[in-house]
Computed example of a mutant assay.
Amino acid sequence: MATTGTATGRLGHTTADEDVSQRLLDSAAQLSYDPAVEIDWDAPLSPDHYGLNPEWSTLYGTRLWREMTHEQRITLTRHEVCSIMSTGIWFEMILQQMVLRDQYLKNHANAEFRFALTEIADECRHSIMFARACEKMGVPAYIPNRPVAEAARAFKTLAAGELAYGGILVAEEVLDVMQRDWMRGEDVLPIVRGTSRIHVVEESRHMKFARQEIRERLRGAGPVRRHNSALGTAIAAAVILSSMVNKQVYAAAGLNVERAVAEVKANPHRKAMMRTSSAHLIHFLGEAGLLTRPAVRIYQKLHMI
């Protein structure tokens, strides 16, 4: 199989890989957005619009949801979407460091190198966009707890190859499905619909890039490496998904936090929505050989399967 030259002499990088990266570069040149001008940041927020489709609220379908006032539901969904955006900012910062480290001293004549930097530039804009949206909604930053933050610090420092791109894909795939609904939600704030539309369009390229990188890194990988990568990706998924909605969003809506958390954990609708948002990811991981038994058990506990 023909290979393209790289500064590190990495084996397995093919002309087909270069073709994928070049197509992604062409797409980025034709279809990219500047959130600073694409979104009307000065428009007032309608008091009757949700932060996300009610069906995506963690409490939707529970007894507590039925007891809540319309105003509480509005407040909760706005805090939930900003918690998810905050998690997005946190993980995009991790992603940027992993991609930049992966491309260190690579051949900058390759399309793969140029698209990797294009992705980093996209992620910078996305983080600024999410931060600005949360500020507009008057919602504070929701930061992961200390143990999770330190675990992520170790992950971004040590993860490489398919494990790094697997973690990236988990965060992007799950959020993508959610945002495809948010961008169409007529009862969702226009600012959320706009940021979701931009993110969906540009992240579709990032997901293709991550899938291609995973396939490339796993060519010729033995069973031990696949087992370790599968388990590591599943653990990363557990950390990411458990951090998406901070429990303090319930306090912000005037709810009893302990009761809210308990109802979320037992909520069958929430579990079904998690399986829906994970379907494409799980299918790809199966194709890539990253659905080992230990990994599947973790995904089942997360209600992704």
Rank of each mutant, 00 (worst) to 15 (best):
A2H: 14
G5R: 15
G9W: 06
L11V: 15
L11G: 14
H13L: 15
T15V: 14
D19T: 15
D19Y: 12
D19V: 13
S21Q: 07
R23K: 14
R23H: 08
A28G: 03
L31D: 08
S32R: 07
D34I: 02
D34C: 02
W41G: 04
P47F: 05
D48Q: 07
H49G: 07
E55R: 09
S57R: 00
S57V: 01
T58P: 05
L59W: 02
L59R: 01
R63D: 13
R63L: 12
M68A: 02
M68D: 06
H70L: 13
Q72R: 04
Q72M: 05
R73S: 05
T75V: 08
T77Q: 06
H79G: 03
E80G: 03
C82S: 00
C82E: 00
I84W: 10
S86A: 09
T87L: 14
T87C: 15
T87P: 06
W90R: 09
F91V: 11
Q96E: 14
D102S: 12
D102I: 08
Q103N: 14
K106Q: 15
N107F: 11
A109I: 14
A109D: 15
A111L: 04
E112H: 11
F113I: 06
R114M: 08
E119K: 12
I120W: 08
S127V: 04
I128T: 14
F130E: 01
R132Q: 10
A133G: 08
E135C: 13
K136F: 01
K136P: 02
V139S: 02
V139I: 05
P140C: 07
P140N: 02
N145F: 10
N145P: 07
A152G: 04
T157G: 12
A159V: 04
A160Q: 14
L163D: 03
Y165V: 03
G166V: 00
I168Y: 01
A171M: 15
A171Y: 10
E173Q: 04
V177R: 07
L189G: 01
L189H: 09
L189N: 00
P190Y: 00
I191S: 02
V192R: 11
R193G: 03
R193H: 05
S196N: 04
V200N: 06
V200R: 05
V200W: 03
E202I: 04
E203F: 02
S204R: 01
M207W: 05
L218A: 08
S229G: 14
L231A: 12
T233L: 02
A234R: 02
I235T: 07
L241R: 09
S243L: 01
N246C: 09
K247F: 15
Q248L: 12
V249A: 05
Y250D: 06
A251G: 11
A252C: 04
A253V: 06
V257F: 04
E258R: 14
R259H: 08
A262M: 13
K265V: 14
K265R: 15
H269G: 05
R270E: 09
R275K: 10
T276N: 12
L281W: 00
H283A: 13
F284K: 00
G286P: 08
A288C: 10
L291H: 06
L291K: 09
P294M: 07
L302N: 11
M304H: 03
I305T: 11
